[in-house]
Design a protein around this nucleic acid. Structure first.
Lengths: 165, 165
DNA sequence: CAGTCCATTCAGTATTGACTGAACGAAGTC
DNA sequence: GACTTCGTTCAGTCAATACTGAATGGACTG
């Protein structure tokens, strides 16, 4: 990818702050934003260059992004660097994150409700009920989104460089 | 509220960690959990005692919880302390939080899309589309939840102490 | 098989920010 | 109107952790 211009830096920094605020890391957000903008596979090295951060940080944060399902590995024929692209089903990933967060919350409540003395607590019961409701809704959302956007089969008019899984 | 027992401490600490992990503060989560368990209005002072934290911290975190719509003020007749309870529509609040986070993300993308050079970016457009879709779904969820649970009019059999808005 | 080029891991550093104690201000009581 | 009793604000401290540079380990090349 070419060097970054002002508007792109703005986007990248904004995303960095967004990530930071939500409990992630700033560089994680920057990498994610950069890959969005790139539209093509980028190597660790190139990411470090463009973002002006250490290779170590790129490696760590890239792994975190991958674990969150935001980014996935790619490879470029004839190049042994590690490449990365935005995860193709990234948006469902966002739903998955919401689902995991909700499940963690539900688990905490369920554990408390298992204690006899707390089993009758109103807030706890409502929390639990809401979690069940919300979880069901989330799967519905995922299905509707998939139905509306996923069935489009991958068209061959990608940017330029070939990409493989 | 009476002193806390082991199971309650477990719940409170778990919620503290949950908040911390999601970008909030540990004490914020503990206060939230405590008010859930209490089921009655609690004063700043009592919260500080039960949680063994400074009054300053209680004040600060309580405000944060209120800003997030998790907690709301209450008052007890004949007592000039400030009381607090779990927000009665707290679950819609959880949806509102999700909505705000999503909107922040959407705003960042929209700002980038406003730049001519980036307007055609595929990931950016998909992100924007997903945000619109998700936001619509969230309002749908809120409505369905309200329809299923809110129409129950407030019954007068509250715990013991009176509570006013 | 030596040499190069990667990415990753680890220890160290520096920044951030959550929490505390003390000062301040407000509201109510005698 | 002095005194008490709160809650909030502010400066300071301390712990957590994001990031860096150096060392390590793999994978490919000649």
């Amino acid at each position: 990818m070419r060097e970054l211009e002002t508007a792109e830096h703005r986007f990248i920094e904004a995303m960095g702050l967004y990530f930071e605020r939500r409990g992630g890391t700033r560089i994680g957000g920057r990498i994610y934003a950069l890959l969005m903008l790139a539209g093509e596979p980028l190597s660790n090295k190139r990411i470090a260059e463009l973002l002006k951060v250490s290779a170590a940080s790129v490696s760590t944060n890239l792994r975190a992004c991958a674990d969150m399902g935001l980014v996935e590995p790619a490879s470029v024929p004839g190049d042994r660097q590690h490449y990365h692209v935005i995860h193709s089903q990234g948006w469902e990933g966002k739903l998955r994150v919401a689902e995991e967060s909700l499940s963690a919350f539900a688990r905490i409540c369920a554990e408390a409700l298992a204690v006899p003395r707390l089993a009758g607590n109103r807030s706890l019961r409502e929390a639990s009920a809401f979690c069940d409701f919300y979880k069901a809704e989330l799967t519905g959302i995922a299905e509707r989104w998939r139905a509306a956007h996923a069935p489009r089969p991958p068209r061959p008019d990608k940017t330029s460089k070939g990409r493989t899984a």
